[in-house]
Each structure stands twice: as C-alpha cells, then as structure tokens.
Computed example of a mutant assay.
Amino acid sequence: MAQKQSGSLLKLGRTLMNNRDLIAGLSRREIEIRYRGATMGVLWALFNPMIMLGVYTFFFTEVLRSKWQGIEQQSSLDFSLVLFPGLLVFTFFSECVAKAPTLILTNQSYVKKIVFPLELLPIINLISAFFHALIGFVIWIVFYLVIKGGLHATVPLVVFPLIPLGILTLGICWILSALGTYVRDITHIVTGLLAALMFLAPIFYPITALPERYRGAIMLNPISVAVEQVRALLYHGTMIDWKQWFIYLAVSLVVASIGLWVFQRARAGFADVL
C-alpha cells in the first residue's frame, strides 16, 4: 500500500531541506543532459537567448518597424529592450509547464523502483528553467548597458516578481504532472494553451495599449503580473505595485497548495497506470 503523503507546503519545506543535496545534484544533471553530446555543451544556454534577442531585434525593428506605446524618442533597439523581459518570463513559465504533463511518465524508475519524493520533480524542472532564465536576464542587462550606458537602481528588485511566479508555476506543474500521468491528452492541450497565453499577456504590447474593458481579463493570465512588474523594474526603472504583488503572492500560494494537494492524492495510483 502506498504511503499517504502530506500536501502541506510547510512539510514540503522540510522535505526540501532534507533533500537539498539530492535536488542540487538532479538539477545539475537535468541541465547537463539537455546539452549532452552538443559540441559547445552548456554554452548553448548562453547562445540561445542571444540568438533570440538578435532575431526579435531584427524582426520588430527592421521588418515591422514597431514602436512601443508610451516611450518617447525610441531608438531602433528600444522595442527589443522592452520586449525581451516579457519573453524571458514567458519562456521560463512555458518551459516548466510544457514539460509538466510528462514529468512522471519520463521518470518512471522513480515511481516503480525506489522510494523517492516525487513532488520534487517539478521543483527540479523549475530550477533548470530558472537557470536558463537567469542567463537570459544577464544577457539583457549586458545588452542594456551597451545601449543605454547604465542600469536603473530597481534592477536588483527583479527577484521579487519572480518569487510568486515561481510558486504559481510550481502549483500548476504539480497539477499538470498528476493529470498528465492519467490523461495523456493533457500534453496537447497544454501546448495549445501556452501559445494562446503568450499573446494574451502584455508581452508584445503594454497593458495600457488595450481598451480598459479588456485589461482585467488580460491580467488574469498567470504571467501577466510578472511580465508587467519585471518590465517596470528592468526597463522603466519604476517601482512595482506592492499591493498587486502581495495579491499575486497570495494567489500563487493558494494555487501551489492546491497543486501539491492534488499531486499527493493522485500519486498513489501512478505505479498502476505506468
């Protein structure tokens, strides 16, 4: 009989502390596997966001000749500078969520052969995605320094919107990894939803560019608050709305609690369906 697992975030904290070396080792392994066999290895983690930044810069400034509403005296590169933070947030979120439905399916040995805290798998996935996001942020900072010559004092505060984003992403991943083990179609549904979420978040446009009646709905997108706050801190140099941040954090904690509860209740049947 499967041992009943706790769905408490507080007990999860103790699990994290007790397994911190395991988490560090598996996270490093997850990153290394991604680049194993590649000639340049982990350097691709550096080149990929640079390539993405270059492509978006060319496409939006030279092909579409886009301008970001609300920014006066824009250079040809300003659109890319203001666009890229939102893309980094979405890429982090989508990398975690896209893999979530198959996390248990691709780690069957942990379910069948050994005693393993399966709830750590989404966390390891999150750390791997954060590693790539961090490199992207570093590249943006270097790019901004080259273009603008200095950074806003609010840049170090970018960690704050990433905290509730990470917690919310974990909650969603726990739910999707549990459901995806039983319903294999979840993977295809998630792929379609992620494509929609990218355009239904203020990534390619500021929220102020939308009519007032649509803004509330757009901000319900799980990444919209993070996109707006990261952009405010990095590019505009303005302080985030702390009331909005606390609401975002509270919602994230609720979703994470529900997600962990669902995962721990569903895990008893994982071995039977694999």
Rank of each mutant, 00 (worst) to 15 (best):
L151K: 06
V138H: 10
G41P: 05
G136F: 00
N18R: 10
Q5M: 15
K67D: 08
W140R: 06
P85Y: 02
R36I: 01
Q69R: 02
I124W: 07
L121M: 09
H152E: 07
F131T: 10
I135F: 05
V183F: 04
I31P: 14
L220W: 04
F79E: 11
R36F: 01
L179V: 14
R213A: 09
L120T: 14
V55S: 05
S252D: 03
K113G: 00
S94D: 06
H236A: 14
G150E: 15
R34V: 11
V115C: 02
A196W: 03
G7Y: 09
L121G: 03
L260Y: 06
Q5D: 15
L126F: 12
R65H: 11
R265N: 14
L26C: 13
V255P: 03
L12Q: 09
L220K: 04
V158Y: 07
H188E: 02
F204I: 04
I135K: 08
V111N: 12
I71M: 14
I203K: 10
F58C: 01
Y182H: 12
L176T: 01
L170K: 08
A153K: 12
L64N: 11
C96L: 05
I71Q: 10
P161D: 01
I189W: 10
K112W: 08
N107C: 04
F92A: 04
E72Y: 04
Q73N: 11
H188Y: 05
Q74R: 13
I163P: 00
G54C: 10
E72C: 01
G237E: 05
T191E: 00
L10V: 09
G13E: 04
F60I: 01
K99M: 12
V251R: 03
G150Y: 15
P156K: 05
F59P: 00
L151E: 08
Y110W: 01
A153R: 11
Q244I: 05
L210S: 13
V254E: 03
S109E: 03
P202M: 05
V251G: 00
L87M: 12
S27M: 06
A45E: 06
W242C: 07
L197P: 00
L46H: 07
T238W: 07
A129V: 06
V273S: 11
I207R: 05
G13I: 03
I127F: 13
I147V: 14
L120R: 13
A24M: 03
F116M: 12
K243N: 08
Y248G: 02
R213F: 12
R36N: 08
V190G: 06
N48F: 14
A217T: 09
L168M: 06
F47S: 03
R184T: 09
P222I: 05
K112D: 06
F204L: 04
V82Q: 15
A256M: 11
V142K: 15
G237M: 08
G149V: 10
L88C: 12
K148G: 07
E95W: 04
P85F: 03
A250Q: 02
T154R: 09
A24W: 02
V82E: 15
Y205Q: 13
I167H: 00
